[in-house]
Design a protein around this nucleic acid. Structure first.
Lengths: 193, 193
DNA sequence: CCTACCGATCGGTAGG
DNA sequence: CCTACCGATCGGTAGG
């Protein structure tokens, strides 16, 4: 029965500002004012600005990872279908409106001080290896660079954060179309065409 | 015979810091110290921190655009070949070590104040429409979303900034492999297979 | 370009 | 969580 609504509110506000203005571009005063708190009071809930970001990032990773794990738990398809379902879940989490996920991208991390950046990478680690496992399971024709496929597929999905606007195709449709862009021919390797 | 070495040095230092730490994460003092100048002296060369960024960004866009235009001027291939050559030139400019180009990406722009962000988008405008023209010229099978292809291809290329390290495949090889990932099957539409 | 400086804002803290 | 405050740093300027 602990009323950590204040902590929750701080996290929400931090996610919003960090995602839109970046870490350096956001002040403790921005965040605390958003929740009607005085700047110093934030330090009752978090030990530092960096600790706040770590908490936001962890929750963002968790949100995406759970979305994908749920999708995979329901899936019984072949490797290509599982990969596609994972991509759909990934994009639904990424574009679904959750503010925390905006902070879960290497482009965001790259601008941070090295030590802070490393801690975020650790938080993403298990999710990224999950994704690698899915790509590894897929059959490919000889000569296709599996690592490049993984990086390019993930990059294409994450890049939607830049251009996606509500009102057009749904995140799920976009993910399916993107996977199809890669899959169609590559998939033939396993069909023997 | 104007010795604008100092202006040049400021631009170089700004490109370096903006690219690595972001706009908000870089101070005038970082930049001026890098070139052995006092903070106030920068304002003799540029009217504001924003003006400095605008100049860096403009040069970054110019660098990429010229690389692509040169490649296209030499090219006499079909639309797919021209698109591939443009992608190669794009990636060679992006990964070739020029510090200015790190600032030429929507992910960087997204964190900026809206009015500044808009000015950068204007600077990128002509280059992006050049790229759109190339994608428009390519033959595609029915059902392939041309806009999505363009966004995904460009996203894949730009995403290499995240993971590219010297020592592996060259930027040109990576660009060719990425285009092939998209092209192989899509291209068949025009071959009637 | 330097000197010398401005007011504003920064992340963070002591004490309650 | 607020009060009250700290030293450091910020973008920028006047005057030369």
């Amino acid at each position: 029965m602990v009323p950590d609504n204040r902590r929750r509110a701080l996290l929400d506000a931090a996610a919003k500002f960090f995602g839109r203005r970046g870490f350096a571009g956001t002040s403790i005063r921005d965040i605390s004012a958003e929740v009607g708190m005085l700047p110093g009071s934030m330090y009752y809930h978090f030990s530092s600005k960096e600790a706040l970001l770590l908490a936001v990032h962890e929750e963002g990773v968790h949100h995406i990872e759970e979305s994908v794990r749920r999708a995979l738990a329901k899936s019984s398809g072949n490797p290509w279908q599982r990969l596609e379902e994972a991509c759909v879940a990934h994009l639904e989490a990424l574009l679904g409106g959750n503010e925390y996920v905006q902070v879960v991208t290497p482009q965001f991390t790259r601008l941070l001080p090295a030590d802070l950046s490393k801690q975020l990478v650790v938080q993403r680690d298990s999710y990224e290896s999950l994704f690698a496992t899915l790509v590894d399971a897929v059959e490919l024709p000889r000569g296709v660079n599996r690592r490049l496929l993984r990086l390019t597929l993930l990059g294409s999905l994450n890049w939607t954060l830049i251009w996606y606007r509500k009102g057009g195709d749904s995140p799920a449709q976009i993910a399916q179309e993107i996977v199809r862009l890669f899959r169609v021919r590559l998939d033939e390797g396993s069909d023997g065409i």
